[in-house]
Amino acid sequence: MKVMPMAGKTKAPSPGLFIEDRSRRAKRIRRRAIIGQMAIGLLILVLWEGCTRFGWLDSYYWSSPSTIVRVGWQAVVHGSLLSDLAYTSGATILGFIAGTLIGSAIGLSFWWSELYSRITEPYMIAINAIPKLALAPVLVIMFGIGFDSKVVLAFLMTVIVAAIAAYSGVCNIDKDLEKMLISLGAKRHHVFLKVVVPSSIPWMVSTLKINISLALAGTIVGEFISSRQGIGRMILYAGQVLDIDLVWVGVVVLSFLSIVMYLGTVWLERLLMRGRTPKS
């Protein structure tokens, strides 16, 4: 390997000199980790396929990767897999966005009045403790078996979590920063916009990943209860007619959806945390 002389800084080091390069080491580890991860994934698929094909696992219950791909493709071409996917992800994302925005607004609003936040706090905790999925049948009756009830469930799953996160942000604001701004002649709305909101962002961002999966769980339960569309309804229907291959297709599709939405929140997190070090 050729050693490059550092321009103008040092003389060319003699060959054979040990030069520490941490970034290269880190890069090497990252590359090997990816290879290892892919190898394990492939191994699981091969074992699954092999075990079901040779009868070590009952293919009636366990299906198999090749069957899942085949049945899945049929569901795309002849069935309604794509529109079901759009339905489920649409309800999840809408509920997630509404829950995060409204929840964050509620949490941030506690900054404005100590009395108001003191009065509200126990109710927030109580509402958070309610198993909201157990309310799903009521919500479906209230909001109908259509799209709305799914969005409402996804919303309810996320809103309190987002509110509590934003409120923790509000509680952790550096009082001296507020004081500094006020000494500069700032009014309360300046302090809110220039200190309270930005300094709470890391707290709000930290719950995005949890909330997107909570929203998905809400939507799916809503579809289980009663629905004409959606991946959840497809799984329920397939289970009822004992089409276990199709159940597996639903599970795999939901897993992929979950991963894609997770990556979406990672991207959103990067966007919102630009120029900051993440909250430890």
Binding site: D174, D176, S183, L184, G185, A186, V195, P198, S199, I201
Partner: peptide, 17 residues
């Protein structure tokens, strides 16, 4: 407030700006 400048030991810069 707002009539005099005030500086403390903490620099009180906003870390996200």
């Amino acid at each position: 407030t707002g009539h005099v400048g005030y500086m403390l030991q903490k620099d009180l810069l906003l870390p996200w700006r």
